[in-house]
Design a protein around this nucleic acid. Sequence first.
DNA 1: TTGTTCCAGCTTTTT
DNA 2: GCTGGAACAA
Length: 725
Amino acid sequence: MNTNTTTTSIIDSLNDAQRLAVSAPSQPMLILAGAGSGKTRVLVHRIAWQIQVEGLSIHNILAVTFTNKAAKEMRGRVEDLLNISAHSMWIGTFHGLAHRLLRRHAKQAKLPDTFQVMDSDDQLRVIKRLVKSLNIDDSKWPPKQVMWFINAQKDEGIRARHMVESGDVYLRTMLQLYKAYEEICNRSGLVDFAELLLRAHELLRDNEDLLEFYQNRFKQVHVDEFQDTNTIQYAWLRLLTEGKDNLFVVGDDDQSIYGWRGAKIENLHDFQSHYPNHQVIKLEQNYRSTGNILKSANALIEKNDGRMGKSLWTDSGDGELISLYTAFNEQDEAYFVVEKIRKWVNDGGLRQDVAILYRSNAQSRQFEEKLMTTGTPYRVYGGLRFFERMEIKNALAYLRVMSNHHDDASFERVINTPTRGIGVKTIDDIRLVARENELSLWQSAVELIKQNRLSARASNALKTFLSLVKGLGDEAEGKELYEKVKLIVERSGLIELYKKEKGEKGEARIENLEELVNAARQFDFDDENEENLSELDMFLAHAALESGDMQGDDYEDCVQLMTLHSAKGLEFKLVFLVGLEEGLFPSQQSTNDIARLEEERRLCYVGITRAMQQLYITHAESRRLYGKETYPRPSRFLKEIPAEFIQEIRIRANVSRPVNVVKPKKSSIGQVGTYKLGQRVSHVKFGEGVVLQMEGEGAQERVQINFRDVGLKWLMLSYAKLDVL
DNA sequence: TTGTTCCAGCTTTTT
DNA sequence: GCTGGAACAA
């Protein structure tokens, strides 16, 4: 191998910091990669470096991401760069890789060979049923909350058996449910998402030989979006890299926006103490946005405490100022945005370069309506994905029961879908017998029929169902995967069911079912299968693990609408950041907790840094929310962006608005407070508290404080006697 | 079995 | 104020 030429070809297109990261010797590496600083580039080139320069085989590389999309992109880019097939390289999501490990070593993981992956919807159903069956009041113990509790425990690596019995009703009940839930999953061979991670961790932890094998195999371990890892994911990474100094992580503490679902930003800090010989490299040169956009983003994020410290810069000039528009109401806001988009398109811009970003999904409607009336094509991200659709899940449930009769969740899903005269009563009986004798629902149903304990009608209906599933199973034997799927779709009665559904909905469902057959036909078995698993089971796992981004085939030039969360990692020439109002963004629930507030601020930072050329920020003076008219104050984040980078837009040509409307007041931007956000203070009467926000100047300056004992209060600084703690 | 009515809930999302 | 789910009546 000609090291000289390959070396150059891999790193000569990089900047100094990137080059340093890519070519560093094997050691724990922490790459703090700001938005738009080329983090994927660094990862891809690092992998290429390992292979071409360090001489590793692709088998020695492990790369972990959070989304299938990111994994796919990384694999593709490695292949392009090296001009090889990276087909057999372990690049995947935490969940995907965990799944692969569990399939390979099902026995050691104490799982049945045919275990199935549940998505969160399946999981919730199981829990709902469980709560009912234990006669627990589901209004006092909402299944969602139970699910949240169980997943939170698993994310922390805690099993039910690790938890101490406690007198506390909440914990006691949750523990009882957790235990019962584990039993159900074990009996049915079901594994939820959190379980994949937890079990993969336990698998390596408890099997020394396996651990050693994988530690030796993976000479280099790369992690993307490290700030989003949770406790168990990080623990798993540490196991794999124990004593090897080969963990290469890329992340950005300023873009950590998933704390609410268990991501531990602390992992970034812990990394440094766990690996004392690590090296940190900051990527701060940004290749995406203009100087003004970056400076605004920097100024905003500086308001957060405990950052690792990073400041983006660009050498491509200041560009336009950020535009701020104060809308009269949410209608006006949408009108303004859509007008600007129209202008952009008239001036020759592409719609797909434009994004409208909002905090919550509910906000999309206003924009959709206005876009629709102007005939502007648009696309809303989020919502149900292909494999999450009801009709698809039903068909998959048939396939699952066919593959494994004892999959209770799927059994229950389809036993009376379409309706075949098996009512609640019959199902209850089946459940009862199942519980009493620790049988699966299928076995229990067979027993009930055998013992003649059902009415003739119910018994017949049940027999029909059982023999339908069995018959389809026999018939499917030896057939191609897509033929099996086709068989289910055509013979389960689902098509007839949806034909009856009125409107276009039913038609769409039938089309989706046909699309499912297509998906099965195109399913690349070899691509996924290293394990000796049936093609059908592999397809089912694929369906659970990849929710199915079927949106890719939509090539029309569309304006993009999405939440700030889904915008992470993307970029657009023209960005509208809308609804910058207290209570909306930052969201109401975050306003009395500094940590959550900081996460909201990071979210805002993510939003700003999506923009390449121009950024519009809007807020409304009045907004209908949950049916009530609200008059929200401008978001505090607006004040945190220095005024010098902002240009306020006031022209309202063509905007029809009611008469008698108060002109928007000049918002005061960029004032400096006496107190720091998050400052702990004490008040003679109210006791101790934390400063949450500030506004006004001089004698008018007010601070909002969250007092430990009396809650939120606004205080005039000129009156309140506050002591800094 | 189906259609109606009532009622709670209401950030963010991937796997 | 809208939605989805559950309870209820016919």
